[in-house]
Design a protein around this nucleic acid. Structure first.
Lengths: 206, 206
DNA sequence: ATCAAGTCTGTAACTTGTTCTAGATTACCG
DNA sequence: CGGTAATCTAGAACAAGTTACAGACTTGAT
């Protein structure tokens, strides 16, 4: 519970500069390899080599391939959150703004479909041992959606439920798209459909 | 395209009786192993041994572990569809009936959480090479939901969108539950929330 | 009954994620 | 600076999914 100055790093022993650099090289190598071949192309030996680090060291930083890819996703999401903040969505209603934001994110993912594949597959394949990290990703996603809604006050319980369902749909729709079972148009429709839930959960009264 | 008398098996060369029996033994062994340890406990060598079949034969019937587990899910889903048909949901509205049906299915999964884990993880981890099989599972799920809705006429495009979103939520909510990041109560709320979409897509006119 | 084609078995090999170990390097403390 | 604990490296070893292959068994047609 001791507050830290940084962004999100509770109770992690501070890293030296060289360690921070290693960590960054590893994440970079991971994203790089993922950008070509997707999940399968991220091979631990190759990541280690590309990052200029021994295999054992890679495993010290990220205890499994899934941990590594989920951390990669955290990294990318943070980047995207920053980008999205700069140009807030222009829609009239919260539902429109959320749909617009998600579609913008979706277009970004389309530019690197293999990277998206690696990250999303890792995310949904993650077992309990990765729960904390996956939860961080989930919180980031929630933050992005709530940002897009642009609420004047903290969200109600019903709104949070709607946001959770939107996240579910977002992840699952991505998977169906990545595995070639749904078209881009289809994903768009699904996102727009689920966003209608927001209107439904608008507070009946202030 | 030659029509077959069975249920769902287009363009598959007919199996001899012994082959059918082998296939059944394999699926049974798979479900059995999955029921204990989940995804990781389904080890191809063990499945082969438990089914009394050589490893190469197992791979001839199911070209990968994911194929095997998705086929296992098909099998279980078919069973569940049958069970659900017997006692149709009692709710007043389509939304209520769908939520009731999904919660019933959810309770069934809770009885075999490891099996659920194996099947759902395989389903979301499946890559393009498993698309046809995953699609079959998806169609089965859709059929179950449409059944529960109990519509007098074929569903509209908007209703089908809602059903797709419900499926997305169903899969993703299961995953968060299986990985311990959401409680049973939470899954229930998410299902109920997304089912409200059905009301939203009720035809404005007949 | 016999032959050819296809299938099944048993087993070894290969791949990639993961673990382990011994020795070199680095960081920190006095 | 010197010592010590932690970290890093290189590489072997292990586990489980997957592939390969030689020989035995089935099946179906003649």
């Amino acid at each position: 519970m001791t507050a830290e100055a940084g962004a999100a790093d509770p109770a992690t022993p501070p890293l030296t500069e060289r360690q921070e650099a290693r960590r960054r090289r590893i994440l970079h190598a991971s994203a790089q390899l993922a950008s070509r071949g997707g999940f399968d192309a991220v091979q631990m030996r190759e990541v280690a080599e590309a990052a200029g680090v021994a295999l054992g060291t890679l495993y010290r930083y990220f205890p499994s391939k899934v941990h590594l890819l989920v951390a990669t996703m955290q990294d990318q999401l943070q980047r995207m959150h920053g980008t999205l903040r700069k140009r807030p969505p222009a829609g009239e209603t919260p539902a429109e703004r959320v749909a617009e934001t998600l579609m913008r994110a979706f277009r970004a993912l389309q530019r690197e479909p293999h990277l998206a594949d690696a990250m999303v597959r890792a995310l949904t394949f993650a077992d309990r041992s990765v729960s904390p990290e996956v939860d961080t990703v989930s919180r980031l996603t929630t933050a992005i959606i709530l940002d897009a809604m642009g609420l004047p006050e903290p969200p109600s319980a019903r709104q949070l439920s709607a946001v959770r369902v939107i996240e579910h749909t977002w992840h699952s729709a991505l998977i169906t798209w990545l595995s070639g079972r749904a078209s881009i148009a289809q994903v768009k429709i699904d996102i727009e459909t689920v966003c209608k839930l927001i209107d439904l959960t608008a507070e009946p009264r202030a």
